[in-house]
Design a protein around this nucleic acid. Sequence first.
DNA 1: TTGTAGGCGTTATCAG
DNA 2: CTGATAACGCCTACAA
Lengths: 374, 374
Amino acid sequence: MASVKNTQGTKTSQAVVDTAADAVEEFIRRRKKATINDVARLARVSKKTVSRVINNSPSVRNETREQVNDIIARIGFRPDPQARGLAFRRSFLFGLIYDNPNAQYIVNIQSGALDRMRGTGFELVVHPCDKESDDFLEEIREFVELQRLAGVILLPPIAENRALLAVLEDLDVPYVRVTAMHGAENDPPILSPQVVSRDRHGCMLAAEHLLALGHKRIGFVTGPAGYASARERRQGFNEGLSKQGLSIDPALEVEGAYSFESGLEAGLKLLDRPDRPTAIFASNDEMAIGVYRAAFQLGLHIPDDLSVIGFDDTPAAGRVQPPLTTVRLPIRDMGRAAAETLIDPEAERRASTIVSASLTVRDSTGPAETIFKP
Amino acid sequence: MASVKNTQGTKTSQAVVDTAADAVEEFIRRRKKATINDVARLARVSKKTVSRVINNSPSVRNETREQVNDIIARIGFRPDPQARGLAFRRSFLFGLIYDNPNAQYIVNIQSGALDRMRGTGFELVVHPCDKESDDFLEEIREFVELQRLAGVILLPPIAENRALLAVLEDLDVPYVRVTAMHGAENDPPILSPQVVSRDRHGCMLAAEHLLALGHKRIGFVTGPAGYASARERRQGFNEGLSKQGLSIDPALEVEGAYSFESGLEAGLKLLDRPDRPTAIFASNDEMAIGVYRAAFQLGLHIPDDLSVIGFDDTPAAGRVQPPLTTVRLPIRDMGRAAAETLIDPEAERRASTIVSASLTVRDSTGPAETIFKP
DNA sequence: TTGTAGGCGTTATCAG
DNA sequence: CTGATAACGCCTACAA
């Protein structure tokens, strides 16, 4: 109870500082987690004033603010997120919700988002889910509601699930969708904050690359129907081909499931025939590597007998033999941008952050000429 | 204010139920998030009693308990984790802390842990960190302290960092280490809850497999010095060799960094000479695939000219050409077990959960005989 | 500009 | 076994 009373006669500024300093050091010695009350007492203000300082309220005299901040720094006070959240009716947690099998993608998004979140006081809660489950929506609703999330990051493919978006709107929680940029299509574009990648453009580059190498008979392995990315990539590739008056040959198009196995199967279907294509574009690396396997099984050599392009530029792309030419997306940057959207208060612009794709040319693509058998 | 007063004359059990039912339906109609107060009012008990029911306190009459649970179920009440956390001085969050570049590993641990956590009310907060950073420890301390974590899962290699463990002990937060089982060694084993894998045993199997195929000159690519897993794997492989009176040949041992590049480099060093080994064991898949590249560069064919074994059984292992023989660890199960350790109150047994390794034989290993050049 | 009273939703204390 | 009452640490409303 060593309450320090300020002697009337000596309440010069210096004296105040001294006695306060004692109290502060006394406090630090006990090294207990400081609360807003400690700060208030030590700074000789009400806790409401401390609260104002914490929340950057403008209505605090500068002198007072400095005084408070000084104490805060000295005793190492950090407001308790739980208490704050309780009062705010909202936590300081972002939820990362996904149903996506690509580990590298998930981890990259995560680390990008966390990168941006560092120092902001927000934390990231991961929440994989099963979009085929019966209680898919209810499960997510409960998660978001119960945790009173401060924001949600949605990854493909569920970022395109309108029913899910409706739930989030209903819950009134800020959210960002990470997805492939939406091209002109039948269904209307979704107008909520999003981080979009120029998948189409990337695939256009891929098509142009193959065209430049002289390829004409080109196989295409589509992604699963219903996936925005699959649609975009197909469209982009087609656009690229169209620059030379070509287009995706229906006879040389096979739908895959973004998996190695589906790529292998598609590859066999495309290659195990006399009029096989001289090049194949697979809508992701996973499937492209499946095509590698198909080529191997058929005794075809890449890139001499067949050129292959993938999409994603996963680490594996650089490690298979031959290293895979592929479209690269800056996934980490997308994670960063997603977090940014949730953090920045003016995210209400409801705008899109756009990131572009590029082509990483490696050794899986070569000139078409060498393939002609005289 | 439609407070339902119970008419004295009609307070039969049935009447009570009826009026209560009305109030309940009335409440449900407004579909607002229910609080403990709502439950208390509707169940005609104090909120403390509701609290007791929530927390499975034994001192509640069964009848009362059922009554309360009934209301809870009907209005869909879920206690607020933030408020609960505030009162408990402890959140319902587990932290997953790691400094590990293996995306697949991270995601598998995550999904295993989340798998076990489903329905328990706990959530998982991911926290990558940089063990080389100056404020490595302080940063983690603040994270754990501020979030008042209910538990921490530590992944290799920081799961072996004693300074970090000391911090966690000091913070008095429950934690589990996921790591390779500790063999007899110089430094004393760490005696905190852990989920350990039999890396040694797995590598013994690998050695035996190569031995059985007739290999004698076997190269070994070690993991980075200081990593428990690296040490264990080496020891296990050596033990395996010793069964045939062999041991790791110092001239055929190269240290790698668990990366593709280091594997490539090690592979070149091992293979680019006349007395090259007929088989190489790399301490993880990443490096094994680097060895693939080295072999390719030197014009060696796997498995005809060289057998290769990796460790981890990452998805890539099954996709490279030829598919890689590798030691498999049930990573997801380890994640599950880690969560289990934190969830189960009797985790104080301070015991280890042990999972075993197995050998996945694919096509990268073949008989040594074929290599002899007559 | 600052402080007081009250509340956020839950649990702990200590009576009854 | 049950219930007032006071925390938990912070914020909002309303005064001063």
